[in-house]
Design a protein around this nucleic acid. Structure first.
Lengths: 224, 224
DNA sequence: CGCATAGTTCGTCCTTTATCGAAGCATCGA
DNA sequence: TCGATGCTTCGATAAAGGACGAACTATGCG
């Protein structure tokens, strides 16, 4: 009964625990089926289906049907950004969660944030790239340094801006409370990490686990 | 029953229409009393009071008691950023609101976004400052240009970074879908506009109305 | 064609919570 | 000290919406 966009409608979609768990799961970047999301949210299939249709109707999800599988994914970076913003507030406002647990510890070290790497590793990487002046940062803004093109070309990443999306963007890390690298460059680096099998995705989690070899390679490449 | 920060808890706080209206009202940047917020949200005083204590408990608001008045305000820029992010998704997802109305038209032109200016005017200003190289922008990142210090000093704004907050930050405008200027510089410019009485705040709204004289002065200063 | 798997729809139960009137505190002004 | 105003707490009511089992639809496989 007031102005502007219907913010309560969107927020209440995220405000249900089952739906919040689904959205959080989808922050991993890969689309999931209804059954997987039901498991993830800890509800029955019918319940999950009902939630999913609400999220669809609200425009927060996209649906890709492949045979008898229906893959649900986040509707876009804007939605992902909103989830991260809410996560940030939730983390800042109340460490009233007890039991950090081993799952959370791994998440703090390295995890996927929609399409790029987040966590302590990612924050350290950005710090190092800035210290070496591959990237330049003024406060929270990041841009490419003079040596960036050749530096990333050497490891097979083309830094020439192609998409409408910014090449590098700062993304506030909810666990460390400092920025890590997002944007197409952040996404490309995560691709590289997984392609080279330096790390693997933990099943049913956003956590990213580096192998000992992979960690060395990553550190040589980005933290050296 | 899963990982990380309790995002559903925060989102459900914003997910109630009455509370959403209150938070939207507080995006104006000024703290308001419980009665004002009750009016704003269209609910009775007891109902508003109940909502406010929930928002307080959730850590989204701060409270300043002055005599028998109790002023509620947003807990900080992080909360404001979250609200803007949700607003952005809501605006992108569904222009299913009919009746844009005169209120909304004014809002699109110029409005307050927590502590800085947003809307078409603000977007135009940022564009112009970038074109004149007072500010430099790479994609979505903004930093000061060489002439920035002297340029802003001339109109009484000290650009030397003092607070922990970044001097300039990009903030995505939900109506125009492009960035405007936030950060301490954005806040200082809004202060200037109101101090010089180039514009006034519309009562009970985030809209900012420029006077004819004020508009000229503003354009001379920032769009010239 | 028939069975198995993936998913949605329907009907019903039940918890959650938003709402307001009335009464209770607290602070100000005289 | 005594109203008056601003706000909160209490108690009762009503409505919204989340949960699941059972039945239904659709796709794939043999």
């Amino acid at each position: 009964m007031r102005e502007g966009p219907d913010i309560a409608r969107i927020a209440s979609l995220v405000g249900d625990p089952a739906r919040a768990n689904m959205l959080t799961a989808l922050m991993g970047g890969t689309a999931l089926t209804a059954s997987e999301l039901a498991l993830e949210a800890g509800v029955s299939l019918p319940t999950a289906s009902s939630h999913l249709s609400k999220l669809m109707e609200g425009g927060l999800l996209t649906l890709a049907s492949q045979g008898r599988h229906r893959y649900y994914g986040l509707a876009g970076p804007q939605v992902a950004g909103m989830i991260e913003a809410i996560t940030g507030v939730a983390a800042a406002v109340g460490p009233q969660r007890v039991r950090p647990g081993p799952r959370d510890a791994a998440m703090r070290v390295a995890r996927v944030c929609y399409d790029h790497l987040a966590g302590e590793q990612a924050v350290a990487m950005l710090d190092r790239l800035v210290a070496r002046q591959v990237l330049l940062r003024d406060d929270k803004e990041i841009r490419l340094g003079p040596s960036a093109a050749s530096h990333f070309a050497a490891i097979g990443i083309d830094v020439a801006s192609k998409a409408r999306r910014p090449v590098c963007r700062a993304c506030l890390d909810w666990s460390v409370r400092r920025s890590h690298l997002a944007g197409t460059l952040g996404a490309a680096i995560l691709d590289k990490i997984l392609l080279e099998k330096w790390a693997r995705r933990e099943k049913d989690s956003r956590a990213v686990i580096f192998s000992p070899m992979g960690r060395q390679a990553f550190e040589r490449m980005f933290l050296g």
